[in-house]
Nucleic acid binder design. Structure first.
Lengths: 336, 336
DNA sequence: CTGTTAGCGCATTCAG
DNA sequence: CTGAATGCGCTAACAG
């Protein structure tokens, strides 16, 4: 069976009037007689008429679509962000085209091309851990398509960004570990390519400094966010002659994995070693011991990013604002 | 700044040749001289030319887009399924347009209209818990747009479906509880509107029957999947004069929430009461105690559904196959 | 091999 | 208020 659709022409013929009148009636144009309008509208619903968005977008040079590029879909973080995005997009009459990169730069480039070809009116991006070149995103700017970054932002581009205060969050987390008596706080950091990794690392460092604790570089390990590596690095830390008594992890999945390793080694949490994560993922409260973590306003990240973008689309004013949302330390049993 | 794009015309003018030749060169048409092709291709990349998919889709009456409607985005289940979908879609040259309903029927209808207007070539759907009327989906059939259901399927429509063997999974889970010595197995079921709820309930019932255990209706509670209710119902079960010694939950989030309640009441798991879930969500292994659950091949659900759909789009043969994927019981510490 | 023409479905001129 | 005509960017059929 072939794809068939009802067009304006079909309903124009039925009613024996011109296409333009039908179009006007359908789009709520003022200059059309009440009777004609009524007749058109009724026939339209009766015939299951759906305007062809492709045509509309083509002729208006506006697709009412915003593209989203996220690095991954495994953790609950990005799906949640997307929830926030969709919410405000829908309210403003935009469709959301979601693409996902599985942390691959190549995939990110491919997704960008795709969204460009799809004529999105704006782009919301969070980078993969591999991304170092931004040409595929700069094309959007050059073509006059607004771009807004969120979470994993690009520091090379002068566009609006939505982030959380990673520095502050990391500082508070580390401070919490110190003030609860820990002396040797290790940090399982993210890849240095990501600004969030660097900021969290800075927060960690500054907290130690502030409390007069010498920074031991052997306690800082950067890794690529692949879960298998966590086992290796945590075991390495636990094998150190002068074992750490606390571990601050770049995110919750990392922390949870670390906890598994620590428990397997027969060490007690938090007595032998305290653990804190970052993000407050949905299940972090349920694991044993429940995880102390830095909560981010996940959906807010999405909704503010979308708001910023849509505003830019509709007003053409593009101040490269950086919205920094607050984090909150959630203390649970992995530290106290 | 206004949105501006490079068109075939632009590159045709630069090269002083006709638009059709450019088009042919770009689409890899055989009948075009190597020099022209080379020149066109080079200029195209140099100018950042991106074909306008809206036009292409419009003229070909094919958007190379498949629409996806999922009921929710909070748990990791649907994002994972989507991963599977995207994988095969991308390989076959399709874009995926994802929509999410927050378990609202109205939202589902709105999403369907949107996808229809977007001229998707096919539709992948998993129903919300509220959906009882399927008119918004039948429109696709009527217009000759293939539809494939997955996970939460519609029994009223004769289209391909991808499900897991819910009955079998539930049966095995219940059997496991019985053979490990439980006599009073309760079931926290999903809403009867969903076929998966009914099938899991049937599996549960049949397992009890098979082992000669009388079914106590007071131990079966159907609920609407809103987490807050779990506390109420679990407490109710625990307050029964003849308390259950096992609890089979419709899914993992429910089971995890139930575990929290049980622990708060000071009961031991699995000694006082065993718990089993369904889905094997990512974090189910990490909670305390780790959760015995029925694993589903999540990504496979997505990929097979996508394969079924694309096959239907491209061959026009629409046997309403029902693919039933296998489940696997994962035994962890919440039961033994 | 290449150029010309027509038309996808729609919104938007411009004339009545 | 309504109809006819134009074009969005592109492909396909038809002529050279």
């Amino acid at each position: 069976m072939k794809k068939h659709q009802i067009t304006i022409l079909d309903i124009a013929r039925q009613l024996n009037i011109s296409k333009s009148t039908v179009s006007r009636a359908l789009t709520g144009h003022p200059k059309v007689s009440p009777e004609t309008r009524k007749a058109v509208l009724e026939l339209a619903v009766q015939m299951d008429y759906q305007p062809n968005m492709l045509s509309v977008s083509l002729v208006k040079n506006k697709s009412n679509t915003i593209g989203v590029i996220v690095p991954e879909f495994m953790s609950s973080f990005f799906p949640q962000v997307i929830l926030g995005i969709q919410q405000v997009a829908r309210m403003s009459g935009y469709t959301v085209l979601i693409t996902q990169c599985s942390e691959s730069y190549e995939q990110e480039v491919a997704n960008a091309r795709l969204l460009l070809a799809s004529q999105v009116d704006g782009l919301l991006v969070s980078l993969t851990k591999e991304t170092l070149n931004y040409d595929h995103l700069k094309i959007f700017q050059r073509k006059g398509i607004p771009v807004v970054f969120f979470n994993r932002v690009c520091e090379d581009m002068e566009v609006p960004k939505v982030i959380v205060d990673d520095y502050e969050g990391a500082y508070r987390a580390t401070e919490h570990l110190i003030t609860t008596g820990r002396k040797r706080v290790a940090h399982l950091a993210g890849p240095a390519t990501l600004a969030i990794s660097r900021k969290r690392l800075d927060g960690y460092r500054d907290a130690l400094r502030r409390y007069g604790i010498a920074i031991d570089e052997s306690l800082i390990i950067s890794y690529d966010l692949t879960m298998e590596k966590v086992d290796i690095y945590v075991n390495h830390l636990l094998n150190l002659a002068n074992r750490p008594d606390a571990l601050f992890c770049i995110n919750d999945p990392t922390a949870i994995q670390a906890i598994q390793v620590i428990k397997q080694r027969g060490l007690r949490i938090p007595e032998d070693i305290a653990v804190v994560g970052f993000s407050n993922d949905y299940y972090s409260a349920f694991i044993e011991p429940s995880l102390t973590t830095v909560a981010q306003p996940v959906q807010d990240v999405g909704s503010t990013a979308a708001r910023l973008l849509i505003n830019q689309i509709e007003t053409d004013c593009d101040k490269p604002i950086i919205k920094q949302l607050k984090t909150e330390l959630i203390v649970r049993r992995s530290t106290v």
